[in-house]
Computed example of a mutant assay.
Amino acid sequence: MTSLPLSPVPSAPSVAPASAAEPRARFRDLVASEWLRLRSLRSTGWALLLSALVVVAFNVGTAWDHSRYWHQYDAEARAGFLRSGMALSDAFTANASMVLAVCAGAMGAMAVVGDHAGGLARTVFAAVPARSSLMAAKVLVVAAVQTVFGAVAAGTSFWLTQAVLSGRGAGLPLSHPGALRIVVASALLAPVCALSGMALGALLRRAAASVLASVAVLLILPMMLGERRYVTAVLAHGTPVHAWRRLAWQGPFEPPFPWTQGGAWTVYALWAVGAAAVTVAAVRRRDQ
């Protein structure tokens, strides 16, 4: 009895692992994706432009006021204006710093909340399971954009205000002692506040609540903390706006409880690093 030849059994098709079919996204790809998403929103450009215009307008308006009524000052007042370097106070005013802090904080919060408002966060996290890397890329992009925004606002303000005051012989160059420090401190205030807004947005996940919280933390709280008592002075020194005031101060710094420029720069760094860490860590235990 002869046996019939057996037909070969077809082997099951091999299934390539998902990791081989779709390589893991590189961090630079995530950064490029976040930059593309941020740039594609028309509201981003308009918000940056309008915020910069308002900030510059506050500073130029103050310098124009001093220039316009220069003839009403007596000789002693004019000499005091020149001697104390008041032109640098016009380069970036306290009102402009508060406007910059609020605008940057709100834009930072909306950079995070915008993904959750329309449910886009679920899709993004499904496509990129590495949530921490994705949020780190978002933090890097927002920080870079806000740094450029702050540099443009601070640099333009300095150039225009000193040009206005130069008509009265009161303008100062960037090489004047303290001038560069004011420009850099004003420029870096934007990314510090934006990162703080991102942290609040990552924690609250609601647009209105996040924006209001950023205003409360960055503006209202520093206004409530005075420097006449030790405890409130120490708490005030730990806020970005008060750190900016310390760096922008002209002349001898003689409050009841003085502190150093190095301490103010440290406050900047701690707020930026701490806010970035909170933003990245907040997505690890959330469903979206």
Rank of each mutant, 00 (worst) to 15 (best):
V164S: 01
L4R: 14
L180N: 04
P13A: 08
R122N: 04
A208Q: 03
F58G: 09
R228K: 13
M1H: 10
A190N: 09
L49P: 04
G197P: 07
G105W: 00
A106V: 15
F92N: 11
L48H: 07
L204V: 03
V267R: 05
L218C: 02
L188S: 12
E254W: 09
A18Y: 11
L140W: 03
R168V: 07
P23N: 08
R28N: 02
L204D: 04
A213I: 10
L180T: 14
L120F: 00
A79T: 11
F27G: 06
R122W: 03
L235R: 04
V141C: 08
G45E: 10
R37I: 12
A233E: 00
A94Q: 10
L41P: 03
W244K: 06
E76K: 07
V217Q: 01
M198N: 01
P255S: 04
W70Q: 07
A12T: 09
A104L: 08
L36N: 07
E76V: 15
S186T: 06
S3L: 15
A32N: 05
V128Y: 01
M1R: 08
A87Y: 00
G171D: 04
V124M: 06
A236F: 02
A57K: 04
F92R: 11
L165S: 07
R205D: 08
M86R: 07
P222R: 10
A207D: 08
D29S: 13
V60K: 01
S40W: 02
T147Y: 10
L6A: 14
W259G: 13
R246V: 15
S186L: 12
W64H: 05
V102F: 14
T161I: 10
V112P: 00
M223E: 05
Q261E: 15
A194I: 12
W265K: 13
M1S: 10
P17W: 09
R131Y: 00
T147K: 07
R168F: 00
L165G: 12
R83W: 01
A101N: 02
V273D: 08
L188D: 13
L270N: 10
S89F: 05
W249L: 12
L4E: 14
V217T: 09
L225T: 03
S97N: 09
E254D: 12
L221Q: 04
F257A: 00
D74N: 10
V148P: 05
V112F: 00
S175N: 09
A79K: 06
V231R: 07
A281E: 08
R206S: 14
L225N: 03
A272S: 12
A243K: 11
A52F: 07
G105T: 14
A143L: 13
T147F: 13
A179Q: 02
A75D: 11
L38K: 03
L48E: 05
V192K: 12
A87S: 12
A151V: 08
A104M: 09
A127Y: 00
A136T: 15
V55H: 05
V148G: 13
D287C: 03
R245V: 10
A75G: 05
P10V: 07
R245F: 15
A121R: 01
Y268L: 11
R42A: 12
C193N: 14
H66L: 13
A154V: 05
V102Y: 06
W64K: 04
W35F: 14
F58Y: 13
A281Y: 06
W265V: 14
S43G: 13
V31Q: 01
T161G: 11
F92S: 02
L221C: 02
L165T: 05
A151L: 14
A179P: 04
P240Y: 11
W271N: 06
P222W: 14
